[in-house]
Nucleic acid binder design. Structure first.
Lengths: 202, 202
DNA sequence: GCGGCAAGTTACCGGTCGGTAACATTCTTG
DNA sequence: CAAGAATGTTACCGACCGGTAACTTGCCGC
């Protein structure tokens, strides 16, 4: 149950040093994603960022708020990724979903992947009033909304059902990634998505 | 990022008092499942169990080992559940999977559910040498194996593909449960499973 | 009643947690 | 160069972390 120790984060003085706040934030994002939120303390973050605790508390009001920022960052990057993957197939929702799943599989199977940071946060953050909870909830709600919208656009027989099923496939992949090296069942996600869409006449 | 405080666990002296070890273990299981593993300290457990830290360390070698026991307990209960659900449809793998998903949906949608304790542990426990990791990995591997075996038994066109897809659906449901009150997309899992099996000619 | 054991009590250990005060240094910019 | 902002340093806070020692109390069967 050990936590990330302040000393062990590779090297404690990264070459570039733009504004401390950014260094701290980038470091925190990586550590939170790789080791989990609860496992990473302020000391570990500031040490890995080559700075000190005071500099941290001059830039962030609290750890919880930093966590919320981390999740907002993950959220916006996710939608950047989504829009980028979807863009080449404008107006062809079926191809958009296929592209999404293809990208999802290759992304999730890469060895650096630790699944979805926001999904992981859903596990770690239980307190209803944690500033990060709202970010997670709205993120996952938007995923559901978009999958359902895509299912509508491709004129599926039961779009809500199809949209939710596609979401389950994707989320399941995130979870599977955490136990299977290289992803395991994740590899089947694209074909499964195709099969579901076929069955819905889309 | 608050943790479960030793004081706030409803009442600190449960009526029945069979052997302390059991009281501690049951309490720990519930707290771990409800609040997460890292969020629950030894103090919180022993207080909620109406005992003290020394009694804990007389029964368990360490917290990590308790966590591993908790996961083993979840694992064996899961297979008890699985076998029970599957039993009435011996020899009819298609019906067995349907029964599994029906039970999975109703279980996961219940308001006490916090998804799959073992999947949650996969998120929280990152250390490769934690005694709980092996339990999680073997649990998820066995799920995959069984789904694939069921797909073979129902003579699916591509049994490995179908088995993995079914697993993704189920795992996705566990994750969705954590952000959507009452489960959200989980409700679509059964129909999605049926659709996939139909498409595989099973 | 007495021995033995299970359980409770109290105090303690070093270490880490998130967070802060006061002060010294360096960097940037006018 | 000087002023002011940004950053670093050190020490500290109370609380909690997982874990332990020494001793006392309660309960059981013989």
């Amino acid at each position: 149950m050990s936590v990330v120790r302040p000393e062990d984060s590779s090297l404690c003085e990264p070459a570039a040093k733009p504004r401390v706040r950014d260094r701290i934030f980038d470091t925190a994002c990586e550590l939170f994603y790789r080791h989990g939120i609860r496992a990473v303390g302020i000391d570990a973050i500031v040490c890995a960022a080559g700075t000190n605790k005071m500099s941290f508390y001059r830039s962030f009001p609290s750890k919880d708020e930093l966590v919320a920022d981390y999740l907002r960052h993950k959220d916006s990057h996710f939608w950047l990724w989504w829009d980028e993957v979807v863009a080449p197939h404008q107006g062809r929702p079926r191809q958009q979903v296929e592209a999404l799943f293809e990208a999802h599989v290759s992304k999730t199977c890469s060895k650096e992947s630790r699944g979805c940071g926001l999904a992981n946060a859903a596990v770690e953050i239980v307190e209803e009033d944690h500033p990060g909870r709202a970010v997670v909830v709205s993120h996952k709600s938007e995923i559901r909304r978009r999958f359902r919208a895509l299912a509508v656009a491709m004129m599926a027989r039961d779009p809500e059902q199809l949209g939710d099923a596609l979401m389950l496939l994707m989320e399941g992949g995130y979870l599977a990634r955490l136990t299977f090296p290289k992803g395991g069942p994740v590899a089947s996600a694209l074909i499964a998505a195709r099969t579901l869409m076929d069955a819905h006449g889309a």
